[in-house]
């Protein structure tokens, strides 16, 4: 039981990652692909933050005048703060591409876009 609890976070992370991955490769709608991508990204973030957590620790903000406080690892937080913002930047560019594809092809379904490309 203890082993399962110790790995539960990681297993859910893998589940989320695979759901995002499956949404990306099996769904034809471009907006859904992008939402799948952001689920995939978030799962990686949860993985990092889970690895940084120390049970019984507190948030890494120094408490004045107290000795022997256990602080959770600050480094994953720092890395993931950057990753979140970059993730939104990627999403914005992706969605702008979707808008342009809609203008050029009149659809955002992958198979219909391929059909039109084959005709040309």
């Amino acid at each position: 039981m203890k082993e399962v609890l110790g790995l539960y976070n990681y297993w859910i992370v893998i589940g989320l990652m695979m759901i995002g991955f499956y949404t990306m490769i099996s769904r034809g709608n471009l907006v859904k692909k992008l939402v799948g991508l952001s689920i995939f990204q978030t799962s990686v973030m949860i993985l990092y933050i889970s690895m940084g957590k120390i049970l019984g620790g507190t948030a890494p903000i120094i408490i004045e005048g107290r000795e022997n406080v256990v602080y959770t690892n600050p480094i994953p937080s720092v890395l993931i703060l950057t990753a979140i913002v970059v993730g939104v930047a990627t999403l914005a560019v992706g969605l702008a591409l979707v808008v342009r594809i809609k203008e050029a092809y009149g659809t955002i379904e992958e198979d219909e876009i391929h059909e039109q490309d084959d005709v040309m």
């Binding site: 907006v31 933050i49 993931i80 979140i84 939104v88 969605l95």
Partner: peptide, 25 residues
């Protein structure tokens, strides 16, 4: 998980801006 800075960034950027971007699209 004690990552409070990440939490409020995610709440603002992930739940806020991303949703607005998707809805705009």
């Amino acid at each position: 998980l004690d990552a409070v800075d990440v939490a409020f960034t995610e709440a603002a950027v992930g739940a806020g801006i991303s949703t607005v971007l998707v809805l705009g699209t």
